[in-house]
């Protein structure tokens, strides 16, 4: 999965940012935003969390999930 996410991140670097959060060493954030299971993707925009998705999904599905949650007009 990592190479796919990295590929997406590179491809859409001007639209959104992909970051990683180690659930084992960052309990405060994990608990606050309730990251459950792996992989879990939480989307943030302007300090808000519009939604999440998870599981191993195809690249196109991943991109679609993201675009469904963000306001792309700004970009």
């Amino acid at each position: 999965m990592a190479p796919v996410v990295a590929e997406i991140a590179l491809e859409y670097k001007d639209t959104f940012v992909v970051v990683k959060l180690n659930s084992g060493s960052n309990p405060k954030t994990i608990q606050k935003y309730r990251f459950i299971g792996h992989p879990t993707y939480l989307v943030f925009q302007d300090g808000q969390n519009p939604g999440r998705f998870g599981g191993v999904i195809p690249k196109a599905k991943f991109i679609q999930e993201v675009f469904d949650l963000i306001d792309v007009e700004e970009n």
Binding site: V19, K20, H38, T40, Y41, V43, L69
Partner: peptide
């Protein structure tokens, strides 16, 4: 300023 997708993982 850009939307961020946070991926949780575990070592």
């Amino acid at each position: 300023k850009l939307p961020v997708v946070v991926e949780s993982y575990k070592d």
